[in-house]
Design a protein around this nucleic acid. Structure first.
Length: 608
RNA sequence: GGGGCGGUAGCUCAAUUGGUUAGAGUACCGGACUGUCGAUCCGGUGGUUGCGGGUUCGAGUCCCGUCCGCCUCGCCA
């Protein structure tokens, strides 16, 4: 083996005259005939031009160089010199070249399915996933792998300096049926019993606090057996943290410091102040719990004014429980938002359960077109409240609070994209605070924890919370009362992306029992599922809280991609398949027998 | 589970209203060429149009089914 002395990104004019050896992949070749051949050699670090010239090279060497093809791996030894043909400013090594003197072909590449060096034609993702080793050779993917590594390293360094201990928690866990669907693993030694893969290390990190760990960190793999999305994968990675003897403020400050250091270190950016907003305000003004604050287009509640009209869409919505009428004002939208576009918006909001988007334009002090004539009686009041200006367009939502908010929140983002109102250079960090503890689900007639059942109520809410009596079939008043209890949770949001979420946890047993009870767990059921936690809370549990960052999403933002598969070395498709290894796969009956497992799958879905 | 988009040469794509032998660029093979850097020029190989069925004189194109990939709703405490 002719071992490299430098990488393909290392050589500079200062190396001129040195005899060096490089190893790498043939990125491209330019063959000018028997007398002159150029090779661009690639490795993780860059590209270096090799030249074979009949002035300097033997006939044998030229013939060997002539046979080189894309993706062959070679070792090349030769002298560094400044380029005869002038520098190539596109390359870091563009001022120099290596005069090939000794060439060893380490591996011939047979029929590459695509060329990693071809930056113009990116193969379709299916092909990239099938031949992932080729895809990962691409400089862009190498850059992402490197960024991910640097985030992980910086995470360990930062939290190490803050006194955190990295502790590993189990991958084979007890199944707790709340939350997402579990991945299950059959036990061989305990026939009929199953492990679950962790949805997060939540309970273990709380137990570590009870165990006196004080500050815990883990870069933890998590598993949720739900359908993937562009930014979601069944198997993903969290930067998982927990701290003892803290209040919310300590956690927020510590995590802000982390985010600042990530953006400073990786992007060279000084992050400005973190804004703070309550969940209620976020939902009211932006229609979403992870608002993008880089642009306006806020939602305004005009239910009181809408009630003065005879417009059936408005008055009908207001008769619903929690019915509202809200509006988005698009400055100068009258011209930009054509009928065709607003018709598209009506279709767009239907997927979120809204009926449509009533619209009108503010022209000459009056409402023109659309539903203008219906809201004529409230023209002056609307104009004053919204600060209307000539040429504004109004887009309305009228429905239950939940549906209207969701639809207009999504619409707000779509308008911003359509009208290119988003400044990509901005970084708007915001903490979303004061989430409700619970949400009532009309379908299943029960409460669900908005975050998770171990989230503490805000300290000043505890007394009111403990005093609440809510039966199995709560009245509307009881639902309202419980939903108004605010938790001590927090989400870190950047430009409309939730990058981390956490809370101060419950550290008192009677509070935890109360929460379990409200979620429909009897004392017996709670003991059955969480006895270890309830016992731990009884045996000296410190006040504690923490957070988990989505590492994949963090890297996505830092690498400016909206495809989570780009930031995972070996990701899975929407069908949960790894196209390279062809997982998942069938296994031998012998394997199943050992596990006391039989498949009911017949190959015909109608029979299962 | 629902909705949408897509699958044509190794790769990226084209193919008129259903009509001749399914084309181009690139890669690959052969040839020419001494300063390229997306090298250039000439020639060539390469196709079960994802798969199965149907309509038709004739299907890449229309219909039905199915598989795969992507986006999305539901789902994701």
């Amino acid at each position: 083996m002719l071992v490299r002395t430098h990488t393909c990104g290392a050589l500079r004019p200062s190396n001129v005259g040195e005899t060096v050896t490089l190893n790498g992949w043939v990125n491209s070749y330019r063959d000018h005939g028997a007398g002159l051949i150029f090779i661009d050699l690639r490795d993780r670090y860059g590209l270096t031009q090799i030249v074979f010239d009949k002035e300097d090279a033997s006939q044998d060497l030229l013939e060997a160089a002539d046979k080189l093809r894309n993706e062959d791996i070679i070792a090349i030894r030769g002298k560094v010199r400044t380029r005869d043909g002038g520098p190539n400013p596109k390359l870091a090594t563009g001022e120099i070249e290596i005069v090939g003197d000794e060439l060893v072909v380490l591996t011939k590449a047979v029929d590459p399915p695509f060329m990693p060096g071809d930056t113009n034609n990116l193969p379709k993702e299916e092909t990239r996933l099938k031949h992932r080793y080729m895809d990962l050779r691409r400089p862009r993917m190498q850059e992402i792998l490197s960024t991910r590594h640097r985030v992980a390293k910086l995470t360990r360094d930062y939290f190490d300096a803050e006194g955190f201990l990295e502790v590993e928690t189990p991958v084979l866990c007890r199944s707790t049926p709340e939350g997402a669907r579990d991945f299950l693993v059959p036990s061989r030694v305990q026939p009929g019993s199953w492990y679950a893969l962790p949805q997060s290390p939540q309970l273990f990190k709380q137990i570590l606090m009870v165990a006196g760990c004080d500050r815990y960190l883990q870069i933890a793999r998590c598993f949720r057996d739900e359908d993937p999305r562009a930014d979601r994968q069944a198997e993903f990675t969290q930067i998982d943290l927990e701290m003892s003897f803290v209040d919310r403020e300590v956690v927020l400050q510590t995590m802000e410091g982390f985010a600042r250091s990530v953006w400073k270190e990786l992007k060279g950016v000084e992050v400005g102040p973190f804004r703070r907003i309550t969940y209620r305000e976020a939902m009211d003004r932006y229609g979403i719990d992870r608002p993008d604050l880089r642009y306006g287009l806020e939602l305004h509640d005009i239910s009181d004014l809408a009630a003065k009209t005879d417009f059936k869409v408005f008055t009908g919505a207001l008769e619903k429980r929690r019915g509202v009428v809200k509006v988005i004002r698009v400055p100068q939208g009258a011209e930009k938002l054509t009928r065709k576009i607003t018709d598209g918006y009506t279709e767009f909001v239907k997927q979120f359960g809204a009926g449509g988007v009533p619209t009108t334009k503010y022209v000459g002090g009056k409402f023109e077109a659309g539903i203008g004539k219906f809201i004529e009686p409230i023209t002056a009041e609307l104009a004053e409240r919204l600060g209307l200006e000539e040429g504004d367009q109004l887009l309305f939502g009228a429905d239950s609070y939940a549906t209207c908010t969701k639809a207009l929140g999504e619409l707000r983002q779509k308008i911003a994209r359509d009208l290119e109102l988003i400044d990509d250079s901005k970084l708007e960090f915001v903490w979303v605070l004061d989430f409700p503890m619970f949400e009532w689900d009309e379908g299943t007639k029960r409460f669900y924890a908005l975050h998770h059942p171990f989230t503490a109520p805000r300290e000043d809410e505890i007394e009111r919370f403990m005093a609440l009596e809510v039966g199995a079939q709560p009245t509307d008043e009881q639902v309202d009362a419980l939903e108004s209890i605010v938790s001590d949770g927090y989400d870190m949001v950047l430009n409309g992306n939730e990058i981390g979420g956490g809370s101060i946890r419950i550290h008192r047993r009677e509070l935890q029992s109360k929460v379990f009870g409200l979620l429909g767990l009897t004392e017996d059921q709670a003991r059955q599922k969480f006895s270890f936690l309830l016992d731990a809370l009884n045996r000296g549990a410190p006040p504690h809280g923490g957070i988990a960052f989505g590492l994949d999403r963090l890297v996505m933002l830092l690498c400016d991609t909206n495809n989570i598969r780009d930031v995972i070395a070996f990701p899975k498709t929407q069908n949960g398949a790894d196209l390279m290894t062809e997982a998942p796969n069938a296994v031998d009956d012998e394997q199943l027998n050992e596990l006391y497992v039989q498949s009911t799958w017949t190959g015909d879905e109608s029979e299962t």
